[in-house]
């Protein structure tokens, strides 16, 4: 051999290639926004009521039914200026109705005038879900993740991929300093 390759070098190359193959196999399985069955990627069930024809008619016409409005107000949720929009059933998501709420806090508000806050699913009964993840972090951390500290749960569980990347960044910085500055036994 011209460059002096030994058997241990081939073992090393084989290990790297096998790890690379394993990485690509895992990559197939990694969903775009993390684990789809993680609690944060599912909607929170707020309440359920019995389905009647009047309610479904109102939802189809884009009006918030009075029964639903009463339920929202009984729970202290702000529902002023709500608009109902139909969501078609697509691949991997169920059909239903989005309830969009106007946010008129200030005239300098540059966000979209209405954002989807609640989701209505009609089957034998009507289920009303809530969208926003920040509320989920605050209210449901302990019962979903078993960790009393909200920050730990968000860091390591809900945003697990992010933290894995951060740890890799720190490890890479350490390896770079070792390669450049380590003096191998000389102090």
């Amino acid at each position: 051999m011209v460059i002096g390759l030994k058997a241990i070098h081939f073992v090393g190359i084989l290990t790297v290639v096998m790890l690379l193959a394993l990485f690509f196999y895992v990559l197939e399985d990694v969903p775009a926004f993390g684990d789809p069955h993680s609690p944060v990627n599912e909607r929170v069930l707020l309440f359920r009521i019995k389905a009647t024809d009047a309610i479904v008619d109102d939802l189809n016409r884009g009006i918030l039914p009075d029964e639903l409005r009463a339920e929202f107000e009984r729970r202290g949720l702000d529902i002023d200026g709500a608009v109902v929009r139909r969501v078609e059933e697509g691949e991997g998501k169920e059909g239903g109705y989005d309830i969009n709420v106007h946010l008129n806090e200030s005239e300098y508000n540059t966000r979209e005038p209405e954002i989807p806050c609640y989701f209505v699913n009609v089957s034998e009964e009507i289920r009303i879900y809530r969208y926003t993840p920040a509320i989920r972090y605050k209210e449901r951390t302990e019962e979903e993740c078993g960790v009393p500290n909200m920050v730990t749960a968000v860091l390591a569980d809900y945003r697990g991929y992010d933290t894995l990347g951060e740890t890799t960044v720190i490890f890479t910085a350490g390896v770079a300093v070792i390669l450049l500055l380590r003096r191998y036994g000389r102090l």
């Binding site: 684990d35 302990e142 993740c145 569980d157």
Partner: peptide, 28 residues
């Protein structure tokens, strides 16, 4: 189960505690 799906890890405790134990004693 998916990659990093802690809740699916076969530990003999309930779902939320499985996530909690793995986050506390392995990940951190």
């Amino acid at each position: 189960a998916e990659y990093l799906n802690y809740g699916a890890f076969p530990l003999p405790v309930e779902y939320a505690l499985r996530r909690g134990y793995l986050v506390t004693y392995a990940v951190e």
